[in-house]
Design a protein around this nucleic acid. Structure first.
Lengths: 341, 341
DNA sequence: ATCGTTCCCGCAATCGTTTGCGGTAATTAT
DNA sequence: ATAATTACCGCAAACGATTGCGGGAACGAT
């Protein structure tokens, strides 16, 4: 199955030069005469020569491979990030290896090891939902550049790229308040989720700014924030004496669950209860009424992540200042929170 | 930034053995006494030794990396396949490198080269929409195992894994016929799409079996089969004198566009016009009425693809018989094609 | 004619691991 | 006690590419 693969040695024999000359000719070393150089390059082209990456990586300890670790690739947001990571990495001459943790923390540590073993030049990582033991990550950080994105942790001293979750939620809530809503419910995750907590802070901040009292009964937490849960929790909210006049869900899918049950009970959206989601998933424009939601520019995250990582990889400095970059979001206002005329 | 990485040599020095002994001990070579072996393994564990994959790959010409090439990862179907590829590959000790072609054929050829250069042991590939020049692929095939999935071509002599498109479409159409529909429209892609053509064959086959005349005006082709196109083409269908009583779309997203315009014109779905899609995307259960659609088991595809590829990689035979595997689909019947009581 | 440069190029080591071969010591057989 | 076998282990080469160093030839300057 395998055909003859050209190496420096074979080309050297063919041309009567040493391997060093061939190598230098291909790498535009000044020591090589234009004459020789062109001959070598012609032959290389003819044989379709490609340096053996493993010999090269072995020698130079550089693989031009970036490792990417995410909980799951299957969400629209994540795949948008990855798409851009692939593109940007390629433009810079890097390949990308991807692994999923599926929110399994043992797996996470294991994957980090494997990544190292595969000689990645750097790692882009989005944390598992419940990463507690950050030692494996700190360990990696001693050996290779590592950048966190989306699901991050301020306990890890490295560059981090996140969306401005708090401001995003704040804007969403303020939008609802501007519609005249005062009993705004929130469906969020339990405390261990970084993103959820940040969004909750934004929620609180907006209410506080507009002097709206916080009602604990309107704050609902769950650990698996899915469409089904959205439905269930809406039932719970509708059973309150003081029903909410708006529901903010930390997630589009749960928000869609909310809308579905509201429709089931013939509750007008947004007239009686307005709904706002988070993610700007494709589904947001499928559901009727179309869902108001926060658009997170996943592409930007991927783009910046690669840019900064490659900078770290190619930097000669031992330690770089780590920064946290917050990407701004856009509130996309649709029917589910329209102030109807 | 880099800390001391243990190598065979260093461990040899530490224990007073030669590197060969260390290597053999770790690889369970029978020449090594149990005593020595356990000592070596203990040290290796203590130092968290991991073989340098590049030295190893360099030596053995095996990288344990699988290359995956797809048009885009961003669809639900593709990411389902990839998720399973990642899982299965990992279980077999392989890493996965992913590249997108974005349906760009020059890029496709380029990526194939890069994959080779990165020393992948084998390639899993889904063709671009308009791959014409298959020479680069045939070339790769001479050097490394390659398996096609989803978007395939029978001009390439290798193992292929597809869903049974024809049967899937056939079942969908027959389902509509059993509902008493006789004027069944189809929205498909232009001829160059393998999947679309197969589905179209299934459509024709079902009509023929049930002696329903084929009406060219009900056969609509487009090259970009999106939600928006679905809307547009529905307008076209509604302007016919003989309106269809069912619409089969090659794609869920277009099918959703169909439903949206039908609703806009207050045409009852499924009572007046039934709609069936293809993919079983998440959206299918968001739209109301819920969309009847064909579920394609992406996971199975990924699973089988990895299994077969690894078999080829690890096989000693020069040439393996290439087979085509067709995965069966399920028609998920939902509201959009319900026979209402 | 001599010395100093410059221009090209080859030698050989190196990276970490694997592996064929050979060698020594211990064990067993005779 | 000697020979034959076995059990363990080390030597050294090899994989392909890079690179410091050194060296010969050609050239120009004096």
């Amino acid at each position: 199955m395998r055909q003859e693969i050209p190496t420096l040695k074979k080309m050297a024999k063919l041309l009567g030069y040493s391997t060093s000359t061939i190598s230098r000719a291909l790498n535009n070393h000044p020591d090589i005469s234009p004459n020789t150089s062109s001959k070598v390059k012609a032959l290389a082209k003819k044989l379709n020569y490609m340096p053996n990456i493993f010999a090269k990586g072995f020698r130079t300890q550089k693989t031009n491979i970036i490792g990417v670790i995410v909980p799951t690739i299957i969400t629209h947001f994540t795949s948008t990030i990855i798409k851009q990571i692939l593109l940007q990495a390629e433009q810079r001459g890097y390949k990308v290896i991807i692994s999923e943790t599926n929110n399994n923390i043992e797996k996470e540590a294991e994957i980090l090891q494997t990544m190292l073993q595969f000689g990645v030049d750097g790692i882009l990582m989005s944390l598992s939902k419940n990463t507690k033991n950050i030692n494996p990550i700190l360990n990696i950080l001693k050996q290779k550049p590592l950048i966190l994105f989306d699901k991050v942790s301020n306990k890890i001293p490295c560059t981090q790229i996140v969306i401005d979750e708090e401001e995003a939620a704040f804007n969403a809530i303020e939008h609802l308040i501007n519609l005249g809503r005062k009993k705004i419910a929130i469906i969020k995750e339990f405390e261990h989720s970084y993103n959820s907590e940040k969004r909750f802070q934004g929620y609180l901040k907006a209410l506080k700014k507009h002097n709206i009292a916080i009602d604990d009964k309107l704050i609902i937490s769950t650990d698996d924030i899915s469409l089904e849960k959205g439905k269930l929790l809406t039932n719970q909210l509708l059973s309150l004496k003081e029903k909410p006049d708006a529901i903010f869900s930390i997630t589009d899918s749960a928000a869609i669950g909310v809308i579905k049950t509201l429709k089931k009970f013939k509750i007008a959206v947004p007239q009686e209860i307005a709904v706002v989601g988070f993610s700007n998933s494709k589904n947001a424009t499928i559901i009727e009424p179309n869902l108001t939601t926060v658009d997170q520019p996943g592409g930007r995250i991927g783009e910046i992540a690669v840019k900064l990582l490659v900078e770290e990889i190619e930097s000669t400095k031992a330690v770089l200042a780590s920064k946290t970059i917050e990407i701004k979001t856009n509130l996309i206002i649709r029917e589910s929170s329209l102030s109807h005329s």
